[in-house]
Amino acid sequence: MKDGTSRNIWGSILFYLFIAVFVLVAMFPLLWVFKMSIVTRAELYASPPTILPQTFTTDSYATIFADATFQRALLNSTVIAGTTTVICLFLGSIAAYAIARLRFRFSSLFLTLILAIAFFPPVAIIAPLFLMWSAVNLNDTYWAMIIPNTVFSLPLTIWLLVAFFKELPKDLEEAAKVDGATTIQAFRKVIVPLAAPGVFTTAILTFIFAWNEFLFANTFSFTERTMPVTVAIPNFATVYTVNYGAQAAAAVVVTIPLVILVLFFQRRIVSGLTAGAVKG
């Protein structure tokens, strides 16, 4: 009995030790970037580098918040990511409801084809998309980034919402139709409110994807008027010098809102990713 208890204790110790090491390894790059953002330039370039910060300064944060380009980039990213999220939720909820509820041929194949878009390499369409946007004067506009972001975000949106809609009992819609509601009214007034946790989870994940997107932003944004933060951060470098402290501070400022969202709504995100895993 004692041997069994001892093994359980050592097993628990090893398990939590493994978790601690794993979290430390995963968090180390983020902690190192944060450390870069709060030390002086002399310590930043010290060799060998210091593991723990020896001096603290907020100069890097003062630099980025005094930069009008970075401030504009934060607004641009919010507009692009927010618009992408709204469009994805609108189109994705309708498509997901049709796949989950309406009976039509090849619905499973249709969902498979939608998910296949997520595996398509975006870099493969950069050149033709650039030429097409140039032809219709969309380059260096928000829509040049919102449209491809929406295309590549929709598969995740539809996949998550289909799982949530399938978990809701059909009796709710039938009861609404008995009361005179149409299919669209039942969807808008009954299904969407009940699937609010799933819709909210999908919105968070879609926003994070659009906020972090770099390829389309770097290709289709030419000026400060449309430049998002993912493109603005490398601009804290010149031909001769690189302000690593400012880049690190900008990376921290851009990442913190996403970290807060994920930590605050982690339970909903997990439930959204696992919805429908047991019951289809």
Rank of each mutant, 00 (worst) to 15 (best):
residue 203 A to R: 01
residue 149 N to C: 12
residue 142 Y to V: 12
residue 218 N to I: 10
residue 210 A to R: 11
residue 229 V to K: 05
residue 221 S to F: 09
residue 251 A to W: 00
residue 153 S to P: 06
residue 252 V to S: 05
residue 219 T to D: 00
residue 245 G to R: 10
residue 161 L to P: 00
residue 221 S to M: 11
residue 230 T to V: 08
residue 235 N to R: 08
residue 168 L to D: 01
residue 212 N to F: 09
residue 193 P to W: 07
residue 175 A to E: 14
residue 190 V to G: 07
residue 249 A to Y: 03
residue 225 R to T: 14
residue 174 E to H: 13
residue 161 L to N: 02
residue 235 N to E: 02
residue 207 F to C: 14
residue 224 E to S: 12
residue 194 L to F: 10
residue 184 I to H: 03
residue 153 S to N: 15
residue 147 I to Q: 07
residue 175 A to L: 14
residue 195 A to L: 08
residue 258 L to I: 15
residue 144 A to S: 14
residue 226 T to F: 09
residue 224 E to L: 02
residue 162 V to E: 01
residue 187 F to T: 02
residue 247 Q to T: 09
residue 216 F to V: 09
residue 249 A to C: 01
residue 234 P to E: 04
residue 175 A to Q: 15
residue 144 A to V: 10
residue 150 T to E: 02
residue 157 T to L: 05
residue 233 I to P: 04
residue 214 F to R: 12
residue 228 P to Q: 12
residue 251 A to Y: 03
residue 191 I to L: 07
residue 175 A to P: 09
residue 225 R to H: 08
residue 234 P to G: 00
residue 230 T to L: 00
residue 152 F to P: 01
residue 219 T to Y: 04
residue 258 L to P: 01
residue 209 F to E: 08
residue 167 E to I: 00
residue 247 Q to A: 03
residue 249 A to S: 02
residue 163 A to W: 06
residue 196 A to E: 05
residue 256 I to M: 05
residue 214 F to I: 10
residue 254 V to P: 05
residue 193 P to A: 03
residue 239 V to C: 00
residue 151 V to F: 13
residue 242 V to Y: 01
residue 182 T to E: 01
